Computed example of a mutant assay.
Amino acid sequence: MRLPGTVARRGFHTTRPQFSSPHHYPEGPRNSIPFNPLTRFFFVRYWGFMAVGFGAPFGIAVWQTYKNG
């Protein structure tokens, strides 16, 4: 039986951080993403991809609204 004033001990623990590198990953920054932002025209391709991804649902909705049928 548990008394009302007692608190259960929980097993929280953390790993000691390693400060040998200023980055989170030992390989360095930009290593955990699946693309390289340092390539030529990256931002043009990035914003083009975002514009198509955001605009496609609206374009599909307009096309479905105005198609014959």
Rank of each mutant, 00 (worst) to 15 (best):
G5F: 13
K67P: 00
G59T: 15
F42L: 10
N31T: 15
T39H: 13
R2E: 08
I60G: 03
T65F: 13
F58N: 13
Q18Y: 09
P57T: 05
F19W: 13
P26D: 06
L3C: 05
G55S: 02
T15P: 06
L38N: 12
A51N: 00
M50T: 10
T6D: 05
G53F: 08
G69Q: 08
Y25Q: 07
H23L: 00
M50V: 15
N31Q: 07
M50Q: 03
Q18L: 11
Q18V: 08
P17I: 09
G53C: 07
F54R: 00
A61G: 12
G53S: 09
P22N: 02
T6F: 06
P29R: 08
F12C: 08
N31S: 06
R2S: 10
N68L: 14
I33F: 13
G48T: 03
R45H: 15
I33R: 14
Y46P: 00
G28F: 14
F41D: 09
G11Y: 10
L3H: 09
P17G: 03
A8S: 11
G69C: 07
G5R: 06
F42M: 08
A61H: 09
Q18P: 04
T6H: 03
P34N: 03
L3A: 07
V44P: 00
W47K: 06
P57H: 06
F58Q: 14
A51T: 00
T15E: 15
G69K: 07
N68Y: 11
Y46L: 03
R10L: 15
M1R: 09
T65N: 01
F41A: 09
Q64S: 05
F42D: 05
Y66L: 12
W63I: 09
A51D: 00
F42H: 13
Q64V: 03
N36V: 10
R40G: 10
T39I: 15
V52H: 07
N36K: 09
P29G: 02
